[in-house]
Amino acid sequence: MAMTATVEHADPHHLGRAVEHAGPAPKHIVTAYGFWIFLLSDIVMFSCFFAAYAVLVHQVADGPKGAEIFDLRNVAVETICLLLSSFACGMASIAADLRNRLWFYLSMTVTCVLGLAFLAMEFREFADLVSRGYGPSRSAFLTAFFSLVGCHGLHVSAGVLWLLTMMAQVFAKGFRADIMRRMTCFALFWHALDIIWVAVFSVVYLLGGAA
């Protein structure tokens, strides 16, 4: 009986669907939606770095061109690391929903290790470029390259810290409602970083390496 009353309240014109909400949406929806808005604004910020890179890619100031310094094999392995870590993060979300601690810790550890492997490879690439004298101050192209790829790398570093925090919070507090909301946001963040990396390897390495 209670259910019928609710449906009538939410559907006063008997349209067969809800036209009016009984109240504000549940907190986990509001939180995730707000975080989705943040992610989109983060993507807009990245688009400025992409625009700068696209404009400056040919301004090499007699320095190296993209094709001379990019190692596509390295980039392919980095991409696979991030893709697999995104998948492991999805498994961690499912494990958290099922309140399965073993699979949660396992998936989060795999996510973390793959994220760290990505960061290590990117750091090695940057260190190698700088040691050859191709640092960010060498040319406008390299400035744009380091700021775009480095900005993504900083996001991944922040994501790894957040990941470890989530593991600690689940360890200390269990799968509480607020912890689950944070876990949803973390998963969104990690998957969004993968989307940005798709743009990075396509625009910076594949297109920039051919130019």
Binding site: V7, H9, A10, P26, I29, A32, S93, T184
Partner: peptide, 19 residues
């Protein structure tokens, strides 16, 4: 009553990332 209306809301909207 309040519980079932909350349930109704969940059917009407879905969080990003939620299935």
């Amino acid at each position: 009553m309040s519980e079932s209306s909350g349930h109704f809301d969940e059917r009407a909207d879905i969080a990003p990332g939620a299935e």
